[in-house]
Amino acid sequence: MTAPLETASKPSAVQHLGAIALAPVRLVMGLIDRPLRALQRMTGLSGMAIFFLAPNMLIFGIFVLLPLFINFVYSTTGGSALFLPERSYVGADQYQRLFDCSNYLDPLTCQEDAFWTAVSNTFWFVVLQVTLMIGAALVTALILNRNLAARSFWRAVFFFPVLLSPVVVGLIWRWILQRQGLLNFILYPFGVDPYTWLTDRTWSFAAAVGVSLWAHMGFYALILLAGLQAIPKDLYEAADMDGTKPARVFWRITLPLLMPNLVVVIVLALIRSVQVFDEVYILTGGGPGTSTLFITQYIYETGFVSQPRNPGLAAAASILMGLVLVVLTLVQLGLGRRGEKKGKR
């Protein structure tokens, strides 16, 4: 072993414990070294590079790339069998079934009315949630960027729900929105009768938007805050010296310089929002009726829950959703490029 570094203080108990815990790892790593030296002699440096990359690429290939490709094959097959060899080729039938509508603006006229209901629900969810999300995140970031006492505490406050699991988030709010829940308790003194919010179509949709807003807003506020803090302070000082009005400072300095971050945040929020599932599924289960049924839940239920299940249809729907995500990602990359060029100029 190499000589330990000279340190003034004695190693602490934690470091001792750490050394003991790491001892088996050291042993294993040391034992692996011998065969790997032989490998290195045979294949050289580039061989070792492949060796280091291989496990990641293997897992990646099997569990991400391969599914990505065979998803297209799945979407052209029919039946309820799971494995591809047992499935029959049906061409574009699944897509035709998804698009079989007499009036695209009315989901109920479609053969797969659940899919179009999910699409329409998701559309309105995305529009509402992303708009409110960006607004709330921007306000939060602007406020956190002010000269506050205990700023890191306040930042943590808004960040707290981001770490919670979707199941926990869903259950927390189901508990609050039930009949004997906190919301009714708060509204009770104002003369509002106890109400089961989640059995109402409009309110449960509003709850889905509100809860996902609550759960994710802190994440976007954090990215925007980082963007705000990167804006050079001297710009503000110059504006202050010129006696510029705060509103003008916001529109002329803050917003233009925050634009790259804002674009990233908007597209990220869009991408996430299109895939909404977990917390809403726990909160409302897609109901009442189909009022909070979203695309991911449609894919999940078509592919895994409904009897008989229809993996082909689910695959076709997931490819359509994937296309939307690809377009959004390309938009983000394109806007990012433009932003970079502008920045360089």
Binding site: L66, N71, F277, I295, T296, I299
Partner: peptide, 12 residues
Amino acid sequence: PLSVIMVPLYSI
């Protein structure tokens, strides 16, 4: 995202 490759990943 997982929701796009759910079905084939399950078969794998």
